[in-house]
Design a binder for these strands. Sequence first.
DNA 1: GCCAACGTTGGC
DNA 2: GCCAACGTTGGC
Length: 154
Amino acid sequence: MSKKQYWLMKSEPEVYSIEHLKKDKKTLWSGVRNYQARNFMKSMNVDDEVLFYHSSAEPPGVAGIARISKKAIPDPSQFDPKSEYYDKKASKEKPIWFCTEVSFEKNFPKLLSLHQLKNEKSLADLLLLKRGQRLSVQPVDEAHFQYIQKLGLK
DNA sequence: GCCAACGTTGGC
DNA sequence: GCCAACGTTGGC
C-alpha cells in the first residue's frame, strides 16, 4: 500500500469545470500531452487527492477537491484519428499517453483564487506559484494541500 | 548533443 | 491580445 499523494490538476472551466465533474461524478482525464504531466499521472494511486484548478478563467484558482478513482490507463484519445488528441506515433501495443479516472469530491463554497494563494506566505514554495506554472498536472505537498483545502472550505 | 526557431500555456 | 516561460522539433 503506497502512501497517499496529493496533486493539482488544471482544467479550463470553459472546456471542463468542476461543475461538469460534479454532474458526471467521474471523468477520464484524457488529453494530457506533456511528458512530465503524464509521468505524474502514471504515479498516481487510487484515493490520491486532487486540487481541481480552473485555468484561463476569470479569476483562475482552485475550485474544489477531486479524488483519483482509477489508476492510469492508456489514453483512448491517442488512438482516435478524429480526436484532436490523436497521436499517430502511438499504438495499442505501445501507447504513449496515459490518463487516470478522477472523481468529484467537493467544491469549495467560493473559488480560491490564484491571487489569494499568492498572498499566503506559507504557500510561497507551492509549485504552482514557482516553476512549471504551465504544468497541467503537478504534485502538491500534503501540508500545502491541507492548508489550501482549509482556506477553500472557509 | 546543441541550440535556434517555433508552438503552447496561461496570467494579466 | 500580449507576452513570458518553457516545452518540442529539427537542422547541423
